[in-house]
């Protein structure tokens, strides 16, 4: 189809923007994000919707790496998002440290927890892994309620202080804008990572772990790295949400979100991380912003997932991409047609 991509290029001098890996997704993603931000404007409710979508998207992007690239379904992501959120909450209420510290500490702690959980469950896969990680998520929220002196118990932590960057405090709109940019950047970077040699190994791990092992890479170790990366990204999502909401409780990140996050890439398309983002936007639109179907939005979403799974396993973006490839092929065949 596009074997010319591979022809040895004489020099890197002929740098071509269109050949930058992942640029197409970034372009379309940013365009959609810009339209959404235009739609949001100064409407407070819509800003909240965007914050939710951003959080969903980041949790789904976090799961994307181990689940859709490496093929192991860990469901402890409510805990990882919670760790990111509580990092912001604790740094904000219990210390005088700058809030930026929380953005660093949260993802790192989440990654470490993911590595520990990954070590304990390294021999599990499929249903067993799903069950243990679900139980871990439950145990984590039980722990948040029990550890009242630290976590504030079931009341959680509130009255978080705003960010202060060298005397500049961003407005709410700026925070929303910033988090949208974060999602776009992470989706773009993950898209590139997917295409990179690292991504090639991790994606091979999913279908042919024996081949990866036989090529010289320790599969369990690389799996841990993938889990850590995913947990860190989900923690960023948790931190963003907590900062925007100004509070966090053990109920902020429920197992419901984890289930939604499994389905988002299926809706949007598992082929690229942007599918997870598209799925998150759709999920928020259906579950939170569908006045006519307020109560049934989630049901609609669930049924939609079943239908997509049965009829369009590549998801909405996957279908769009197929369509694009076909149109492209047609256009190339008759370049001066029309």
């Amino acid at each position: 189809m596009s074997a010319e991509n591979l022809r040895p290029r004489p020099a890197p001098a002929r740098w071509d923007l269109r050949r930058v890996p992942g640029i197409g997704g970034l372009f379309l993603g940013s365009l959609a994000a810009a339209l959404i931000m235009f739609w949001v404007g100064s409407d407070g409710y819509r800003q909240t919707l965007v914050t939710s979508a951003v959080t969903y998207a980041l949790i789904a992007l976090g799961m994307y790496v181990p689940y859709l690239m490496a093929g192991s379904l860990s469901m402890a992501y409510s805990a990882y998002a919670g760790i990111g959120g509580y990092a912001v909450g604790l740094v904000s209420t219990r210390t005088g440290l700058p809030l930026a510290v929380a953005w660093l500490v949260g993802p790192i702690v989440a990654a470490l927890v993911a590595v520990l959980l990954g070590l304990v469950t390294r021999r599990l896969s499929g249903f067993f892994l799903a069950a243990v990680t679900l139980l871990f998520g439950m145990a984590f929220s039980a722990f948040l309620i029990d550890a009242e002196p630290v976590s504030g118990g079931s009341g959680g932590l509130g009255n978080l202080r705003p960010l202060n960057l060298f005397g500049w405090t961003p407005s709410h709109y700026q925070v929303v804008l910033g988090s949208v940019v974060v999602v776009c950047v992470i989706a773009f970077l993950l898209d590139r990572l997917r295409l990179s040699p690292w991504g090639v190994i991790v994606r091979t791990m999913r279908d042919a772990p024996r081949a990866v092992e036989a090529a010289g890479v320790r599969v369990p170790v690389l799996n841990l790295v993938a889990l850590a990366l995913g947990a860190a990204i989900a923690a960023v999502g948790g931190a963003l949400f907590t900062y925007s909401a100004g509070s966090i409780t053990p109920d902020t990140f429920t197992l419901n979100i984890v289930f939604l996050a499994i389905f988002m890439p299926l809706i949007g398309g598992a082929g690229t991380p942007w599918g997870a983002v598209a799925g998150a936007v759709l999920a928020v639109e259906l579950t939170l912003n569908f006045p006519a179907f307020q109560a049934s939005g989630t049901l609609l979403l669930a049924l939609g997932v079943l239908v997509i799974m049965l009829l369009a396993p590549r998801g909405v973006l996957g279908y769009a991409d197929r369509l694009r490839v076909r149109t492209w092929a047609l256009l190339r065949k008759e370049p001066h047609g029309g």
Partner: peptide, 17 residues
């Protein structure tokens, strides 16, 4: 596994609705 998770989630939502 993902299919069954979707069924689980759907039945929950259906019952809630």
């Amino acid at each position: 596994l993902v299919a069954v998770a979707a069924v689980l989630f759907t039945i929950q939502q259906l019952a809630g609705y």
